[in-house]
Write a protein that binds this DNA or RNA. Structure first.
Lengths: 210, 210
DNA sequence: GGATTTGTTGATCATCTGATCAATCGAAAG
DNA sequence: CTTTCGATTGATCAGATGATCAACAAATCC
């Protein structure tokens, strides 16, 4: 059957340096996302279909491989255009928020991103705080400003913006961390969460009772 | 200086079985919450101020200790009375929701609960799915029924209830997993999230634009 | 005081884990 | 075909880790 040539989906025994490094990195992202950074280099190598020793030809240490995983997974996921678009008052606020959260969730609602971010957070990596601080300053704060400028009777506090954020992001956590059933397309839920949030802010006062 | 007697906050060298077991369990909860279940029995023993070998007199294996931690942290945290109170239509809906989420967050917004729950979730423990399924069936579903019965123009979907849940719970994640600054008292944020949620449901239609 | 029970320890074992290196293998160049 | 260079491997090392056990020590009982 096998003439010795590599099958289409199969790996040739020998790869040039760049392709091998890529293969290791891809396997590491998948593996560490699943088991966390406590996973062993031997398990990782087995799943990547190569020897454990080979990992160390392309990454000086497990720590360095872990950092390469962080860089690949997190770097460049946040598009600077989002901030600009959030501030574009030619577009209705509701649409701006929906559009932003559709793009944001498209970027981070993946098995790898969600889980590696959570593993890193629990492990106390500074990365998470930096990332979320950036999100707060560059995205949520402008978002709050836009809501405040949209003529509602009171400006929401940052905690309220975080609540909207949590309402949307928690779906990704339920799905990828807890493995609970969640709709494939987050767009409808985003739509309703944003509409709910904005609608409430336009009310003159919280309801008295019942 | 030291006459041989144990100092007030100090541990006597010798404890009766029950007290020792308690000490180990308390230290294990604190330790595993911080570093996860990949932490070592030697580190744990050092922090608990005893020998590593001693752990194995009270727990047959690390696995058994881990299960004891789960039981202590998660068992009996959900009060069955909450469901009853959620259904008590003598109380205004807004107040019922706020009261429930104040009690719920009081139960789970601790460093230990939040982190051990997240470690367990990432590790794929069945515990998390069981727990959240219980929350969904026994608390969020009734909560949805009550909202539907409160005369709003449309009944929210379960995903909307999960959004409210996420808006509130995400504050605990930000605080205990990501170590971001969050208000000590979650009550005001709960109040606003619930008011926002209910207010929006009473609106005749989502806003047309801007 | 001496014997008995029971909590505690240091030493130790088998295995696992990150990391290293000389030996091998494969493809391209001459 | 032979040489050469670089990718790949098996063997191996030192330290860490879960678990065990005989020896020790502090209460308790006679």
């Amino acid at each position: 059957m096998d003439g010795g040539r590599a099958m289409p989906g199969d790996a040739p025994r020998r790869l040039d340096a760049e392709a091998r490094r890529e293969r290791i990195l891809a396997a590491a992202i998948c593996y560490f996302a699943e088991v966390g950074f406590g996973g062993t280099t031997r398990d990782l190598a087995r799943r990547a279909g190569m020897t454990q020793a080979l990992l160390y030809r392309y990454f000086a240490s497990k720590q360095e491989l872990q950092e390469a995983v962080f860089e690949r997974v997190f770097l460049g996921r946040l598009d600077p255009a989002w901030e600009t678009e959030l501030r574009d008052r030619a577009v209705p606020l509701h649409d701006r928020l929906c559009r932003f959260y559709r793009q944001y969730t498209a970027a981070i609602f993946t098995y790898e991103w969600m889980r590696i971010f959570m593993w890193a957070g629990l492990a106390g990596e500074a990365l998470n705080r930096r990332y979320l601080t950036h999100v707060a300053d560059r995205l949520l704060a402008p978002l709050r400003d836009e809501i405040a400028a949209a003529g509602t009777h009171r400006a929401p506090e940052m905690e309220d913006i975080w609540a909207l954020h949590g309402a949307i992001v928690y779906a990704g956590i339920r799905r990828h961390i807890y493995h609970l059933p969640v709709p494939d397309d987050p767009a409808p839920a985003i739509e309703r969460a944003v509409a709910c949030f904005l609608a409430a802010l336009r009310l003159p006062d919280p309801p008295a009772a019942s």
